[in-house]
């Protein structure tokens, strides 16, 4: 894993695995949650949707997951609509803002849930639950109840549950937003290791500029009122990225660029509103 010094790799021959084609979202009351978005994501990318509240980043993620229908436009995963994802032989999983665990079920039971719902046979499921818990470093907590774990550990359980189906695509909706910064940094780092080790494709929603720079191969910057994509910024830095990357000049440069981009959009909004 350590020798995997690949740079932000953009496979040239493969068709993009996720194609968002002018997808937009308007709520029945007429609110434009998201203006038409065009975005293509390649296999193996770690794409972050960055923006303030109300920019539609979570909406876009839920539309990719099929949890919300797009009002207009199309979203294709491996050239198929999300309902047909099984036929492509790929799997997708979703990690929520909170750990979202069943309090009545032990850690292992929570991780096992997707397998049980999909009817995976029992001994196979046992093995996969154990593997998945080992990946997030929680093997010892197999039989604990969620309430016995810290917030960070609960989030790890949630990630283990996301990994247990062996997905190729993971969608994460501000998964570490509620955690303290130290725990969050640690989980960010572990997530990058998992991403490399399992060759995952990740779409990650956050409102933290620093988290976006640290994790991503590409940051999609979004703005609010109306929700829209304003810029795509490749973070062209090698992996693995250690803690030293967080304090490097390059890191600061990317962070500055993103911050300015976000500020410009919000200032433009204020000017436009002032003109009214």
């Amino acid at each position: 894993m350590a020798d995997d010094h690949r740079r932000y790799a953009q496979p040239k021959l493969l068709a993009p695995m996720i194609e968002i084609l002018s997808a937009s979202k308007t709520y029945p009351n007429g609110t434009h949650a998201l203006q038409p978005v065009d975005l293509k994501i390649q296999e193996g990318e770690f794409v972050t949707l960055l923006g303030p509240s109300g920019c539609g980043k979570s909406t876009l993620l839920k539309m990719i997951a099929g949890l919300l229908p797009a009002t207009d436009g199309r979203i294709l995963l491996w050239s198929k609509p999300v309902e047909a994802i099984e036929s492509t032989g790929h799997r997708m999983s979703f990690v929520f803002q909170e750990a979202t665990l069943m309090p009545w079920s032990r850690v292992a039971g929570n991780v096992r849930l997707p397998l049980e719902l999909q009817g995976v046979d029992s001994s196979d499921a046992d093995q996969r639950v154990n593997d998945s818990l080992a990946l997030v470093g929680l093997s010892k907590f197999h039989d604990a109840y969620p309430r016995e774990l810290s917030g960070g550990m609960q989030m790890r359980v949630s990630i283990a549950r996301g990994l247990v189906t062996n997905p190729t695509l993971i969608l994460m909706d501000e998964p570490f937003g509620a955690l303290d910064e130290i725990t969050r940094n640690k989980l960010d780092q572990d997530l990058l290791e998992l991403w490399q080790q399992k060759k995952l494709t990740v779409i990650f929603v956050t409102h933290s500029i620093y988290e976006a720079v640290y994790l991503s191969t590409r940051v999609v910057v979004m703005a609010a009122r109306p929700g829209r994509v304003i810029e795509e910024v490749p973070i062209d830095e090698p992996f693995p990225r250690g803690p030293e990357f967080r304090v490097s000049t390059q890191f600061a440069g990317y962070a500055k660029h993103l911050q300015e981009s976000l500020l410009r959009a919000s200032n433009a909004n204020e000017l436009a509103e002032g003109a009214l």
């Binding site: 997951a65 929520f96 049980e116």
Partner: peptide
């Protein structure tokens, strides 16, 4: 969130009720 998780995993009505 759990409801969406069940939905994403194509849980049946019965599974959603009992689990």
């Amino acid at each position: 969130g759990l409801q969406q998780l069940f939905k994403m995993n194509r849980a049946t009505r019965w599974q959603t009720l009992t689990r």
